[in-house]
Amino acid sequence: MAPFPPRLLAGYRNFMAGRYAAESARYRSLAREGQSPETMVIACCDSRAAPETIFDAGPGELFVLRNVANLVPPYAPDDRHHGTSAALEFAVQSLKVKNIVVMGHGRCGGIHAALNPSAEPLSPGDFIGQWMGLVAPAAEVVASNTLMTPAERQTALERISIRYQIQNLRTFPCVRILEEKGRLALHGAWFDISEGELWVMDAETGDFVRPSLGETL
């Protein structure tokens, strides 16, 4: 049997000596009283775009759901397995979060796959291909635009997809009702890995803008 990854053990030692030692009281409080984060972040699995790191969040601050390309399947109350929907249900109905942020990022592999559906699947199941079918209509339109470079098409779909996911969030009755009552707010964001830039979606226009560092997001 292979040993546990040494890098993870070294990281854990640093965690115990550093962050846990400094915040042990908070961890004990969270264990005793439970979590009550105000914000859910739906982000990509990509190891380069971790929400807790980007937003400098402490323990218990963010309820994070990560999947390939930060997608939200539309509401489908059937007997199939719905991991994303289950996490959303828990965040909204049990934790009663006040904000849901869909955060995409630059150079997303899932979005690249959606723009290149003819590429060889990674496995016979083609799970990524099927999953990215959720944005296939938009991907087809963007991919057909020959006036844009491949990099421009990639960025365009990454941002368009965020707007799609927010639309899908509103297909969930609990989300739609709470948003209409002003008890839940939906947000979009896009993170540029190479420059560390965060772009926030304007709720009215759908445009992505750079917030000033002194601005509350």
Rank of each mutant, 00 (worst) to 15 (best):
F4P: 02
F4T: 00
F4S: 00
P5A: 02
R7M: 01
R7D: 06
L9E: 01
L9S: 02
A10P: 07
A10C: 06
G11V: 00
G11M: 01
G11W: 00
Y12T: 01
F15C: 05
M16H: 12
R19F: 02
R19Q: 01
Y27F: 05
R28S: 08
E33A: 15
P37I: 10
E38N: 03
T39W: 08
V41T: 07
A50L: 13
A50K: 02
G58Y: 12
P59Q: 06
L62K: 01
L62Q: 13
F63N: 01
F63E: 00
L65I: 13
L65T: 12
V68L: 11
A69S: 09
N70Q: 05
N70L: 08
N70W: 02
L71K: 02
L71Y: 02
L71S: 03
Y75E: 05
A76M: 15
D78L: 02
R80L: 10
H81M: 15
H82D: 11
T84G: 04
T84Q: 01
A86E: 06
A86T: 10
A87P: 03
A91W: 02
V92T: 00
S94E: 04
I100N: 05
V101F: 06
V101Q: 05
M103G: 09
G106S: 10
G109D: 02
I111M: 09
H112A: 08
A114T: 04
A114S: 07
A114F: 08
N116V: 02
N116W: 00
P117K: 00
S118R: 00
E120N: 07
E120F: 04
P121H: 01
G125M: 10
F127G: 09
Q130T: 14
Q130E: 15
Q130G: 09
A136V: 03
A139E: 15
E140P: 03
V141C: 14
V142S: 11
S144L: 04
T146L: 12
T146A: 06
L147G: 12
T149I: 03
T149K: 08
T149F: 04
P150C: 08
P150G: 04
A151I: 12
E152H: 11
E152V: 15
R153N: 07
A156S: 15
L157F: 12
I160W: 05
S161Y: 12
I162M: 08
I162D: 13
I166P: 13
N168L: 11
L169R: 11
L169N: 06
P173K: 07
P173L: 05
R176A: 10
I177W: 08
E180V: 03
E180M: 14
K181F: 04
R183K: 12
L184W: 03
L184V: 08
A185N: 15
A185L: 13
W190P: 09
D192A: 14
I193F: 08
I193D: 11
S194W: 05
E195Y: 10
E197K: 11
L198Y: 14
W199K: 12
W199N: 12
D202P: 11
D202E: 15
E204Q: 15
E204K: 12
D207E: 15
V209N: 14
V209E: 14
R210C: 15
R210T: 14
R210G: 15
P211F: 06
L213Q: 12
E215K: 13
T216M: 07
T216L: 13
L217I: 15
